[in-house]
Amino acid sequence: MAVRVQEADFDLSAEVCALSASRTDIGAIVTFTGTVRGTAHGSPIASMSLEHYPGMTEAELGRVEAEAHRRWPLEASLIVHRVGTLAPGDNIVLVVTASAHRHAAFEAAEFLMDYLKTRAPFWKKETDASGVGHWVDAREADTTAEARWQINAPSKAAE
């Protein structure tokens, strides 16, 4: 279990190698990478800046990760989230889940992203081509996506 908040980019394959090195209990590894879209509401963006709440961010990501481990039989997991100024196409977030069997890894990865999007204190601001910044509004769909895990919580045996 690990969470990291950093300005630097991450290397997906290096992270997966480090997480699974000399492990033989893992049979499934799922990764999710979120990247910066080049448009917002149909208009191109020049950059995106990510602000966060140092301290609470790490605490909240840790709580979300611990909840995933409580719900699924995960052997390992990793959340890396970038902050600072990013360009279209840049990596934003990496989630890696590892389990003996694929279903737990798939479901836990989706759960981590759904929970992270509604709970982790990050805020995105997009800057358009003319240099004007716009705070990104929270999406109702993200709240709906998080809510389904509360009524559809799988059992530990859901492998």
């Binding site: 990510l50 709440y53 989230h81 934003i92 509604t118 204190p121 990050f122 805020w123 929270a138």
Partner: peptide
């Protein structure tokens, strides 16, 4: 105590 808009990470 912290005040902020709804979060938009991920």
């Amino acid at each position: 105590v912290a005040f902020f808009p709804p979060v938009t990470g991920g």
